[in-house]
Design a protein around this nucleic acid. Structure first.
Lengths: 149, 149
DNA sequence: TTTTATGCAAAGTATTTGCACGGGA
DNA sequence: TCCCGTGCAAATACTTTGCATAAAA
């Protein structure tokens, strides 16, 4: 079953109805591995389904986030975009060129140790942590390389 | 010399003039260890100096950020706040209650190793990295503790 | 005196809300 | 049928810009 279909089922299981605009937004988000803003989704969705409104995009993204199907991506350039959420705790590698997002795991042992240490030293009760790397993906390096341009 | 004074000198060295409104914004930011939004700064500054306008706060924060005296803090709850910037690369520990920010170093070795590994595996040319911990500081734990409330 | 900075008002941009209508279940 | 979802328009929040005046150097 496609990821889009799984998400639609998830919406339905949670009491939300399946509608054409939702299908469009879900397909766009589920098929992309890039960080997309509500406006990006709207523009792309509007082509497939001209009646789509921006407000519906916002409302659908809100539900997908609430169901942990997508997550917001914070970047130096802004914090409005969303990507597919991965299971478990994963860290992000974000392409500053095209917005492609990859997830990586591991290093949890190291991070847990760090959190213990910082927690003791500072007295904070630490909940969440963010670890993100930013860079250029292979494709963007190729495109931006002055020699090959 | 106070940190506020150092910042004022820095502004001056960079060709900016020292004015009363700037002095107020600089003092507020330099004396606080919390993440403050432009509106927070405006409200607090407005008491000391009623003529202060929000626009001037925005413009002054912009300059302080440009001179690397302050930096933006990204949080799950929003990304509009600023704190004093520290020298070198430091990681943030942010109190989700009061916005207090602490910096910590170290773990760079581990992170560098991680970056090497992820870079090779993914082909990304990695530039920046963010490592942030969120939690409750001692004071906020005390205030929110149901037993002691 | 010269030039930058200020504050107001207005314009922009991003996001949310109210509401009458339309479509899912 | 019932009620949720939709799109529009309007409201709200945050930030930037234009401009005449005020103040720094």
């Amino acid at each position: 079953m496609s990821k889009a279909q799984e998400w639609l089922d998830c919406l339905q299981r949670n009491g939300y109805r399946i509608t054409d605009p939702r299908r469009v937004v879900v397909e766009i988000m589920a098929e992309s591995s890039r960080a997309l803003t509500p406006l990006n989704v709207y523009e792309s969705g509007h082509q497939r389904y001209p009646k789509l409104g921006l407000v519906t995009v916002y409302r659908t993204l809100e539900k997908l986030e609430e169901l942990n199907l997508i997550q917001r991506v914070h970047q130096p350039s802004g914090c409005q975009a969303f990507v597919t959420a991965f299971q478990g705790h994963q860290h992000l590698l974000v392409c500053s060129g095209c917005g492609r997002v990859e997830f990586f795991e591991g290093e949890e042992e190291g991070i847990e140790r760090l959190i213990q240490k910082i927690s003791q030293r500072s007295g904070y009760r630490i909940g969440e942590h963010w670890l993100q790397l930013f860079g250029e993906c292979r494709e963007c390096q190729r495109q931006n390389s002055p020699k090959l341009a």
